[in-house]
Every structure is written in C-alpha cells, then in structure tokens.
Computed example of a mutant assay.
Amino acid sequence: MELIEERTLLGIDVGGTKTAVVLGDEALNILARAEFPTEPELGFQSFIKRLSSEIIGLTGDLIPSRVGISVGGPMDCKTGTLFNPPHLRWGTVNIVQPLVERFGFSITIEHDGRAGALAEGILGAGRGFLNIVFLTLGTGLGAGIIINGNIYSGSTGLAGEVGHMRVAVDGPSLYGKNGSWESFCGGTGISLYAHYRFPERFKRGTTTQDISHLALKKDPNAITVLEESGAYFGKGLAVLLDILDPDRIILGNLAWRLPKIWLEAALKMAAEEALIGDEARNRVVITELKDRIGDYAALIVASGMGRRR
C-alpha cells in the first residue's frame, strides 16, 4: 500500500444505526464517502469485518496520513477501549487495535459528543462562542462540552455522559438505570418510553420514527409520548444551563427530525426550570450541520483540531 497525499484524512463515524467512512483533506473537504448499517446485534467482529471492507473499498491501495474515529461512550480515548456503550451493546472492546493490526493506521479516537461539539464549534452553530454544549441526540444521548474554547473530557475521559443522569424516580430502563435522561429522550429512549407509557398501545419494537409518523397524524397517544419525552428533555436542558451556563446548547439530529411538539415541550420546560428563564429559548439551538455532522466530526478528530483548541 502506498501513502495518499500527506494531508488526506480518513474519518470513521460509528453510530448505533449507521457507520460512515469519509475521505477528506485538511480543509475538511469531503472527497469520498461510504456508509453501511452498523447492525450492532451482529457482534463486534462482524462490525470490524464490514468496516474493514468499506475502508478498502474507499481507499483502495492507498493509506491516509491520519485516521479519526468518532463513537459514543463510555470509552477510554487513550487506549480506544469502549465500555459497553448502550447503543452498541458489544461489551468492553477495543475498536482501535484491530484496525491498527489490519491497516497500520495512526488512529485518534474521540467521543462522538465531543467530536460533534468541535464540528459545530468550527463549522456550525457554535461558531464565535467559547462555551458550548453539543447533545448527540441520535440513537443515544451524549454530550460534548467546550469551555473557554477547550474540549472538556474530565479527569478520566468520562465527561459528557449526560444520558446516564437520572431525571425521574422511575421510568424505562437503559444501561442499568431506570429513569435516566437517555431512556426518555434518545432515539432508543423515546421508543422505550412509548412502551413504558402505553404498553398495550406501543409494543416493544415500535420505533421513534413510527411514533413520529403517528403524531403527525394526530394520534393522541403518540402526541402524549412526544410531549412528555420533550418535557423530560427540557428538565435535563435546564440542569445543563444552570450548571455550565453555556453560550449555546446545540441539539443533534432528533431535534429537527421529530415533530415540533417535542422541541416545543422541551423549550417550555427548560424556560420554566432554568435560572435564566425565557433566555433558555435563545441559548438552545438546532445543529447547523444536520446529517453532515458525523462526517465532519470524524474528519476533525483525524485532523487533530480538537487537540489544538
């Protein structure tokens, strides 16, 4: 294998639903892209085999100069170890080692929340602000926190696992905890909450997309699920606003994909609960990068821009 032009980057964005492999340059221009279903239920080894095939298909006989992986935690970014992320359910695995052994890449790995915060801070809704929080709002719910222009990872790299905080005494169970924020508000969580709230109406396996479609058709149970899920989301937003006082909280893809009733309920609750009151409505905004955020986030991890902030 020969080296691609020195400044060419490879980004890998691993989500609970899909994984994207992106070739780009240091100006963050996307040169080529491939996507495949993550299908975590098939197991980690199956995922690595399919990922390797997509990398070969995208790069051929060439080796990018740097590789970045954006993936949800909990994780150890120094070693590449994932500690059973609830949206992947692989147990404890090292996602970097098999790729290094297979390709010899130099790989940087980052929590998808922090990578998303960098992407929005550099290219999207966080431009011009020093203090931002990005909420992934995909299959799961994690956060990336930038304070005074610097990514905040915490003392052991676990900062940003906001989906694990409890927002209710009881509720759907996810990652070993009933009533966690993610169990009410993530892509998986909303479907879990629908079954928890109306078990006879919404069977296990009813998706958040199904609930959204029903709500748009004025289904009262689906509307109730989204309104109540949104209210729980707003409670969590108020906590983040009170503790971190960010310039912006930037919401990931669910915020613009769901019917507006969900976000309206969230902003109403955030304004009621947060110390800043109605100002919460101005500080909580939707991602500007939308479907492209994962691609840019992974390239930014590969570029090393996060380490320079």
Results as ranks from 00 to 15, higher is better:
residue 111 H to W: 07
residue 109 I to M: 13
residue 152 Y to W: 14
residue 85 P to M: 10
residue 53 S to D: 07
residue 151 I to G: 10
residue 120 E to D: 01
residue 128 G to F: 00
residue 141 L to S: 04
residue 98 P to M: 14
residue 60 G to T: 00
residue 147 I to A: 07
residue 127 R to Y: 03
residue 137 L to D: 03
residue 104 G to N: 10
residue 80 G to K: 05
residue 105 F to D: 06
residue 101 E to K: 15
residue 150 N to S: 11
residue 154 G to Y: 01
residue 85 P to Q: 03
residue 124 G to N: 09
residue 96 V to E: 11
residue 73 G to N: 03
residue 87 H to P: 07
residue 123 L to V: 02
residue 133 V to M: 05
residue 144 G to C: 04
residue 138 G to L: 04
residue 129 F to T: 00
residue 130 L to P: 10
residue 90 W to I: 13
residue 150 N to Q: 13
residue 146 I to P: 00
residue 101 E to G: 15
residue 131 N to H: 10
residue 136 T to P: 03
residue 131 N to G: 12
residue 120 E to N: 01
residue 88 L to I: 14
residue 90 W to T: 10
residue 143 A to S: 10
residue 89 R to T: 14
residue 82 L to S: 03
residue 142 G to A: 13
residue 152 Y to A: 00
residue 94 N to T: 15
residue 144 G to H: 03
residue 142 G to C: 05
residue 85 P to T: 02
residue 53 S to C: 01
residue 99 L to R: 09
residue 112 D to C: 09
residue 109 I to E: 08
residue 76 D to G: 04
residue 147 I to Q: 05
residue 59 T to Y: 06
residue 98 P to A: 14
residue 99 L to T: 12
residue 146 I to Y: 00
residue 115 A to K: 02
residue 151 I to S: 09
residue 84 N to G: 11
residue 132 I to K: 01
residue 146 I to S: 00
residue 81 T to C: 08
residue 97 Q to W: 14
residue 93 V to D: 13
residue 150 N to L: 11
residue 116 G to R: 00
residue 100 V to A: 14
residue 119 A to L: 05
residue 82 L to Q: 02
residue 119 A to Y: 06
residue 136 T to D: 05
residue 55 I to E: 03
residue 64 P to Q: 10
residue 113 G to W: 08
residue 80 G to I: 03
residue 139 T to A: 04
residue 127 R to T: 07
residue 128 G to Q: 02
residue 87 H to A: 14
residue 80 G to F: 06
residue 61 D to L: 09
residue 155 S to P: 04
residue 106 S to D: 07
residue 106 S to M: 00
residue 59 T to K: 05
residue 149 G to I: 07
residue 127 R to H: 01
residue 73 G to A: 06
residue 154 G to W: 00
residue 132 I to M: 04
residue 103 F to I: 15
residue 117 A to R: 06
residue 103 F to P: 11
residue 119 A to E: 04
residue 57 G to Y: 09
residue 88 L to R: 14
residue 147 I to K: 07
residue 62 L to E: 12
residue 85 P to D: 09
residue 156 T to W: 12
residue 114 R to S: 13
residue 156 T to N: 10
residue 132 I to E: 01
residue 155 S to V: 15
residue 101 E to P: 13
residue 99 L to V: 06
residue 90 W to L: 11
residue 81 T to H: 11
residue 79 T to V: 11
residue 150 N to C: 10
residue 74 P to V: 01
residue 73 G to P: 06
residue 92 T to W: 01
residue 53 S to V: 03
residue 63 I to W: 03
residue 95 I to R: 14
